[in-house]
């Protein structure tokens, strides 16, 4: 069965979407990702969509869902590499993606994830003290 590969990098999961996903594939990715977050105890998810030339409401909603679900599972999601034209179209479409953090590229996305982790950890420490 067709699947988007999910790579594990330490505490994070890395997903590079390189195909134009049909809806079921997008749903499968959503399921796989949430399962993988739990299975590998991941604290962050980085989704690289730089290859996506178009995001419609369904894929947008899927990205948003992944962010919300991962949040519930104590993981942060950062979507990176959105093409400018895609971003503009999303806004024009009236699509807001609540809970989705974005970064320009993978490198910045990783930094953002690490920062989120660090601030989470320090909050935990603060709570403990």
């Amino acid at each position: 069965m067709e699947r988007i590969p999910i790579l594990r990098m330490g505490d994070f999961l890395l997903v590079t979407i390189q195909v134009d996903m049909h809806d079921r594939l997008a749903m499968t990715l959503q399921d796989d990702l949430t399962r993988q977050i739990v299975a590998s105890n991941s604290r962050g998810v980085l989704i690289d969509i730089s290859s996506l030339e178009m995001i419609d409401s369904f894929i947008g909603r899927m990205l948003s869902n992944i962010s919300l679900m991962s949040n519930v599972l104590a993981a942060q999601t950062v979507v990176v590499g959105m093409q400018p034209a895609v971003a503009i179209t999303l806004v024009e479409l009236g699509m807001s993606m609540p809970g989705v953090r974005t970064a320009l590229n993978v490198e910045k996305g990783m930094m953002l994830l690490r920062e989120c982790l660090d601030s989470d950890d320090s909050e935990v420490e603060d709570d403990a003290s």
Partner: peptide, 27 residues
């Protein structure tokens, strides 16, 4: 949507419009 993008590119739409058209067709 892939075909929409192709057609849009061929008839001379800008990259931004190509995305708009592909997205609309997809919806």
């Amino acid at each position: 949507r892939q075909r929409a993008r192709q057609v849009a590119a061929l008839v001379g739409f800008s990259a931004q419009d190509q995305v708009r058209i592909a997205t609309s067709v997809s919806e």
